[in-house]
Measured scan of single mutants.
Amino acid sequence: YKIYPYDSLIVTNSISVKLPKDVDRTRLERHLSPEEFQEVFGMSIEEFDRLALWKRNDLKKKALLF
């Protein structure tokens, strides 16, 4: 996945969300650098992957990456 800054990946309720063209809309968190991922989620990507799907989705919603 290509890395993008968190600010360019957050999704708000506005209709005209302009995400970069090559971003996987269903896995926005994968486009964060490991350092920024840790900062946003408070855990590593590996720890995040071990969580239940509902928990990952809940965290993504709170981080505006859903």
Rank of each mutant, 00 (worst) to 15 (best):
T12H: 12
K21N: 13
L28W: 02
K2I: 13
Y6A: 02
L59D: 01
D49V: 05
Y4Q: 02
A63F: 07
P34Q: 14
F48I: 00
D22Q: 05
P20A: 06
D22H: 06
Y4S: 01
E29A: 01
K62M: 10
R25G: 07
E47P: 03
D58M: 13
E36F: 03
V23R: 02
L64W: 09
K2Y: 07
N57Q: 09
E47S: 10
D24F: 05
I15S: 15
A52I: 08
Q38H: 14
N13K: 10
E39A: 13
L32C: 00
K60Y: 02
L65R: 01
T12Q: 09
S33P: 03
D24K: 05
L51Y: 05
R56C: 02
A63E: 03
G42A: 11
L32N: 00
F48D: 00
K18S: 14
F37D: 00
E29C: 02
R25A: 15
I15V: 14
E39F: 13
K18V: 13
L65Q: 01
K62E: 09
I10W: 04
E39W: 14
F41Y: 01
R56Y: 03
G42K: 13
D49K: 06
I10G: 02
R27V: 06
V23Y: 02
I10M: 09
L32T: 00
V23M: 04
E35V: 12
K21I: 13
D49G: 07
L32Q: 00
K55N: 09
S33Q: 04
E47M: 11
K60I: 03
S8W: 14
K18G: 15
L9I: 05
D22F: 05
L32H: 00
E36Y: 02
T12A: 11
E35M: 11
L59S: 03
E47L: 09
V17L: 07
D24M: 05
R27W: 03
S8C: 13
I45N: 08
R56E: 02
S8H: 10
D24N: 07
D7F: 14
I15L: 13
S44L: 11
G42C: 10
R56M: 06
A52N: 09
L28R: 05
V40Q: 06
Y4I: 06
K61G: 05
N13C: 14
S8F: 15
P34H: 11
L53R: 09
L65K: 01
S16V: 10
H31M: 02
L59Y: 05
L51H: 06
H31P: 01
D22I: 04
Y1D: 08
V23Q: 02
R50K: 14
F66P: 05
E47I: 10
G42T: 07
L19E: 05
A52Q: 10
E35D: 10
L9F: 02
D7A: 15
K2C: 08
F41I: 04
